[in-house]
């Protein structure tokens, strides 16, 4: 899988630590919620950068107390029609103040990227064979927004706040 971050395809620096695999001491492990709940103390004791995967039926409150321990939170979209993680992303950014990487994994499609970005997701795991430039252009297809989300705070109207036309790579929380 390729990783699309700020309009570029980059090499993924993280690896998944399977639930039954030994904690290998390697860097940048991504674990499941189940593994985290089981081996929380051991994982913390490793003193490594950690990531976690929230499946679509695992809302962020499951890891509420530990959110700041993670550098990456992966949000799984088992099917693109399962939109729960859009709300999880917004909660992670707004309610829990998560500043690390929010990564969309699973059935991530080009036509959902802009929605994901607007909800605070900033990394996208995509198939290796896709044309990254074409996919990046999906961020800029709709340049105006009727509602605030994670990218902009307010309902943006030209006569209230100046038009806001930024695309991927130029957002803030």
């Amino acid at each position: 899988m390729a990783l699309l971050v700020t309009n570029k395809v980059i090499k993924d620096q993280w690896h998944i630590l399977e639930d039954d695999a030994q904690i290998d001491g390697g860097d940048n492990m991504i674990v499941s919620v189940e593994r985290w709940q089981r081996d929380r103390d051991d994982l913390i004791a490793c003193n490594r950068d950690l990531g976690i995967v929230l499946k679509s039926d695992q809302p962020p409150n499951l890891i509420e107390k530990d959110i700041q321990r993670f550098s990456v939170i992966c949000l799984e979209f088992p099917k693109f029609t399962d939109g729960r993680a859009y709300s999880y992303a917004r909660l992670l950014r707004n309610k829990y103040g998560f500043k690390g990487e929010l990564r969309a994994v699973g059935n991530v499609l080009r036509d959902q990227l802009a929605f994901m970005l607007r909800c605070g997701i900033d990394a996208f795991e995509i198939a290796d064979n896709v044309n990254a430039r074409d996919w990046s252009s999906a961020f800029g297809e709709i340049t105006v927004r009727y509602q605030g989300a994670n990218d902009i705070a307010n309902i943006v109207r030209p006569n209230i706040i100046p038009p806001h036309n930024d695309v991927a790579g130029n957002w803030s929380y």
Partner: peptide, 8 residues
């Protein structure tokens, strides 16, 4: 309209 969170 085109609400990013509530389209799915």
């Amino acid at each position: 309209t085109l609400h990013p969170e509530f389209s799915f």
